[in-house]
């Protein structure tokens, strides 16, 4: 039996006095797509940001419980945060390329680690751009500013940039909410392609999107993990009334 890629044990999180996550226990399966759904403010993005410790950046955050990535607690006091973030990549809601060239954006992760030489870096950049289905569109203008790309291309650039670190997990925080339907469709297809390589967690507002691409779905409500299971089951025979209400559009 393959162990879960990510597992939380009674994960609780506070922003100041405000408890945002209430004893979350979840197991994320390897090389599958897990979608996290729920109304705004339910804590799904916060949970996602626990998996690469991005919540550390928010002042007055308090965390209890464990987050195990490959059976290693990433909240252990001696955990190496930058190493965790290299293994667990993240793509944000709004495309956020650096104000640098396309090449330098993708090469950023390996450049700061300084482990690859120049030609290896070039190979890595090309591979990542191919994996993100962007290579053909940008191969002739790698040294132009990343801002010359369209929104959808920028988001795929951000995916390529994350992939260049060879992550085991890719966290996607509402990656298509700022994009048009066509770009959205392309990114969804891309996710399905990538799951053979990486474990994908996607936070989405879009229930249909979760239904289209995810293998597992987690429904969160008011900081609680209400329901978690195979997407087909969660969507057709939800066990909890709140899940059903959300899926049928009673709230959210």
């Amino acid at each position: 039996m393959v162990k879960a890629q990510i597992r939380t044990e009674d994960l609780k999180l506070w922003f100041g006095e405000n408890q945002v996550l209430k004893a979350v226990n979840i197991e994320i399966h390897r090389k599958l797509i897990t979608a996290m759904i729920g109304p705004s403010g339910c804590g799904k993005s916060t949970l996602l940001r626990c998996f690469n410790r991005m919540n550390d950046l928010i002042p007055e955050t308090r965390i209890k419980g464990k987050v195990m990535v490959d059976e290693e607690n990433i909240y252990h006091p001696k955990a190496n945060v930058t190493e965790i973030r290299t293994r667990v990549g993240m793509v944000f809601q709004k495309p956020n390329p650096f104000p640098k060239s396309i090449f330098k954006n993708v090469a950023y992760g390996v450049t700061i680690q300084g482990k690859l030489n120049k030609s290896e870096t070039q190979d890595r950049v090309e591979k990542s751009l191919r994996d993100a289905w962007l290579w053909d569109e940008v191969k002739d203008r790698l040294h132009e500013s990343a801002f010359s790309l369209s929104g959808g291309q920028q988001q795929r650039l951000c995916i390529a940039r994350a992939l260049a670190n060879n992550p085991e997990v890719l966290l996607l925080d509402e990656p298509t909410s700022a994009l048009d339907p066509q770009s959205t469709a392309r990114i969804e297809e891309l996710c399905l392609e990538l799951k053979s390589r990486v474990t994908i967690l996607i936070v989405t507002h879009n229930i249909a999107q979760a239904g289209r691409i995810s293998d597992y779905a987690a429904f969160m409500y008011l900081g609680e993990l209400v329901e978690f299971g195979e997407t087909s089951k969660v969507f057709t025979v939800p066990q909890d009334k709140r899940t059903e209400a959300y899926l049928t559009g009673v709230f959210g």
Binding site: N52, L57, T82, T86, F92, F98, G109, N165
Partner: peptide, 8 residues
């Protein structure tokens, strides 16, 4: 955020 999330 983008930079830190890439392990910088």
């Amino acid at each position: 955020e983008a930079s830190l999330a890439l392990g910088a």
